[in-house]
């Protein structure tokens, strides 16, 4: 993590999500169920980034992402980086990639789909550029904005 990117790390132990698309930070908090956090959470929205113009950042004290949470974030913020912080130092840094499947990550928005009617664990295959999620059951496709809205 460059000094340029993050002028100070406001957490001692936890996770820093960097290079999030501008405007995605609040959705990330929703996904991580951090709208009413117990520990310190710091959010930076629309900060200058050398790499991508504007970006968001999220700093979460005392949290390590689960693989499922990482995949969910991958659906709306692939290319972002996740930094694991220990004792105010970056212990591990990884790029978040788009998952190939989104099983259980989003719900099918088709009210007539068996997965909706019977409340099944959802199954989606993901195609990239443009981002689309296709329901394994009803075969309906969800667009990027629909995925963004459906993800919880």
């Amino acid at each position: 993590m460059n000094r340029d990117d993050i002028r100070l790390i406001p957490i001692a132990n936890g996770t820093v999500l960097d290079h999030l698309p501008a405007g995605s930070a609040l959705k990330i908090l929703e996904i991580l169920d951090l709208e009413k956090p117990e520990e310190a959470v710091t959010v930076a929205i629309n900060t200058e980034s050398k790499r991508s113009g504007k970006k968001d950042l999220v700093f979460i004290e005392g949290k390590e992402l689960s693989p499922e949470e990482t995949d969910k974030i991958g659906l709306i913020a692939a290319g972002a980086t996740v930094n694991l912080i220990e004792n105010s130092k970056v212990k591990k840094k990884e790029e978040i990639v788009m998952p190939d499947h989104a099983d259980g990550l989003i719900k099918c928005m088709n009210p007539k789909c068996i997965s909706t009617v019977e409340n099944l664990n959802s199954k989606f295959s993901i195609s990239k550029k443009p981002l689309k999620a296709k329901c394994f059951y009803c075969e309906k496709q969800m667009s990027e904005s629909e995925i963004f809205n459906a993800i919880r």
């Binding site: 068996i114 997965s115 019977e118 329901c135 394994f136 009803c138 075969e139 309906k140």
Partner: peptide
């Protein structure tokens, strides 16, 4: 219901032939 045949095929130990699942 859409996707019913896929659900059945995933559940069934025997082959499933879809004769129509809603608008799908």
């Amino acid at each position: 219901i859409e996707g019913a045949a896929r659900r059945a095929a995933e559940t069934s130990s025997k082959p499933v032939l879809n004769g129509g699942d809603g608008a799908n």
